[in-house]
């Protein structure tokens, strides 16, 4: 069986290689701190395998993660001055390879689809070929390997390290944002463990408008969106808002159609996801990937969509579920 952990190790190996390259990069004024950051990240990816399988204590990993945050907080993470591709390089490449340049890029979605849709159903003997519920991630990992091989054979870069150096250039541009989504997942778990959810649920119960259907719909939808903005994840908001209002008020008291209330309620939460830096993998990482000056740029582009869409959800729930 192909396991997703193999690809986490590959990812860890890339971070460790980036750490070594960074250490040797004299154009980076903060090369020691930066190498420590990427090295810790790589080691943490590998160590995580044992933490997940409970064969190693998780607190060691916790220390490593906090050490990474400390390196960032004290300004020790920097980047080298490796130049991006120049206009001349790009034009020469485009003249020479033309539309063939798209082949490696398009390989990625094609391979992912083959894995997620086709190979996911294949079994070798009794067990599935791909680890269950990780088919797309495995597909992404294989796609990356296939694409880099195609790219290498096609383009024949001068140095065998070229893909790693180019990957490092992009990774340095992303910087600390690469770890933020994982840190937020942790924060969400800590919020739950410390009882933040139950507290917010208790507050919403107090603002419940007495016997008004439209009032209940508004509190449920807006509550889902606001809660999601705070937690960064509609999944965290759903059980709490549903226990506070969705089920007792909208379904039991007003006899709403349960499937419609919950489906539209969740989508009201998604409107919140569009607006929050807490949903870093959707809102901050793309900004980092596109090397934007303003890391909140995508959120600013999405808020004017999220607000009318939330209003639509309120109207749809009121009109369709009751």
């Amino acid at each position: 069986m192909i396991k997703v952990e193999w690809f986490y190790w590959l990812c860890g190996a890339i971070f460790l290689a980036v750490a070594v390259l960074t250490l040797a990069d004299r154009t980076n004024a903060k090369r020691y701190g930066s190498a420590a950051f990427w090295g810790l990240l790589g080691a943490a990816f590998v160590y995580s395998t044992f933490a997940v399988h409970k064969t190693a204590p998780a607190w060691v990993l916790g220390l490593a993660v906090i050490a990474m945050a400390l390196l960032v907080a004290t300004g020790r993470l920097g980047r080298g001055t490796t130049p991006g591709p120049t206009r001349a390089e790009q034009e020469a490449g485009a003249d020479r390879f033309g539309n063939r340049l798209f082949v490696p890029a398009l390989t990625i979605p094609v391979v992912v689809i083959i894995f997620a849709v086709g190979l996911a159903k294949i079994h070798t003997g009794a067990e599935p070929l791909l680890e269950k519920s990780s088919e797309t991630l495995i597909g992404l990992g294989v796609a990356a390997i296939v694409a880099v091989l195609i790219g290498f054979v096609m383009l024949r870069p001068k140095s065998p390290l070229a893909p790693l150096n180019e990957g490092r250039r992009l990774l340095e541009a992303i910087g600390w944002a690469a770890v933020l989504p994982q840190m937020l997942a942790t924060l969400g778990q800590l919020f739950v463990a410390a009882g933040v959810g139950t507290q917010v649920g208790r507050i919403t119960e107090n603002v419940l408008p007495g016997n008004s259907l439209i009032g209940g719909v508004i509190v449920y939808c807006v509550g889902m969106a606001l809660f999601t903005i705070v937690m960064g994840n509609a999944f965290a908001a759903f059980p709490i808002m549903t226990a506070a209002i969705g089920y007792p008020v909208l379904v039991q008291h007003f006899h709403g159609d349960a499937a419609a209330v919950f489906a539209i309620g969740m989508l009201a939460g998604f409107c919140g996801t569009l607006c929050t830096p807490m949903a870093a993998n959707f809102n901050i990482v793309p900004a980092a990937l596109l090397e934007m000056k303003d890391k909140y740029g995508p959120i600013k582009a999405q808020i004017p969509t999220a607000i009318p869409l939330l209003a639509c959800n309120i109207i749809l729930m009121y009109a369709l579920a009751f």
Partner: peptide
């Protein structure tokens, strides 16, 4: 992160 090396590479080539 796994796809960054190939994307960086083809960007270098235009």
């Amino acid at each position: 992160v796994l796809v960054l090396p190939v994307i960086g590479l083809i960007e270098r080539f235009g």
